[in-house]
């Protein structure tokens, strides 16, 4: 079992495709939709897949065949350690608890795996240490 996060881009003509239903029904994946947005340029879905590596691979192939653009999310938000002052402003605005203060050192840690790329921390960080990743 592995769990991966992806950002999927749909062109407007794909919006009516029941993509997430296919992920569950045809590939037996456990899915969790982290974010979903639709505007006139198309749709963006941030999604996490849980399943065997083979199932995930087949699902990604299905998506690519259906012209869904896929970006694997390794690091959506990046913490600039030189800029960060370890104040902890990010801690209370993050909805998923991706920032944790080490009560021994009082340094602020960022758990990338928990991040759902909502961007709440980016405009809340006073020294500007949180940035969009590549």
């Amino acid at each position: 079992m592995s769990s991966n996060r992806y950002l999927l881009f749909f062109s407007p003509d794909l919006i009516n495709e029941p993509i997430t239903y296919r992920m569950v029904k045809d590939f037996d994946l456990m899915i969790n939709i982290l974010r979903a947005e639709i505007d006139d340029t198309g749709g963006r879905l941030m999604i996490s897949f849980q399943g065997s590596p083979q199932q995930i691979k087949s699902a990604l192939k299905y998506l690519t065949d259906n012209k869904v653009e896929i970006k694997e999310l390794n690091e959506y938000v990046h913490k600039d350690a030189d800029r960060c002052t370890d104040c902890g402003m990010c801690v209370s605005v993050c909805p998923v608890g991706a920032f944790v203060i080490d009560k021994e050192t009082w340094k602020v840690g960022f758990i990338n795996d928990k991040c759902i790329a909502c961007g709440m921390c980016i405009d809340a960080c006073p020294p500007g240490a949180m940035k969009l990743g590549q």
Binding site: T85, D86, C87, G88, M89, C90, V91, S92, V93, I101, T105, W106, K107, V108, P126
Partner: peptide, 23 residues
């Protein structure tokens, strides 16, 4: 502690000043 109870509801706390740097 990270949590403050205000009127019976839990609020997450954030410091604007750095305790790490203060130390």
């Amino acid at each position: 502690s990270g949590t403050l109870t205000i009127k019976g509801k839990k609020a997450k706390t954030s410091s604007l000043s750095s305790y790490f740097k203060a130390r």
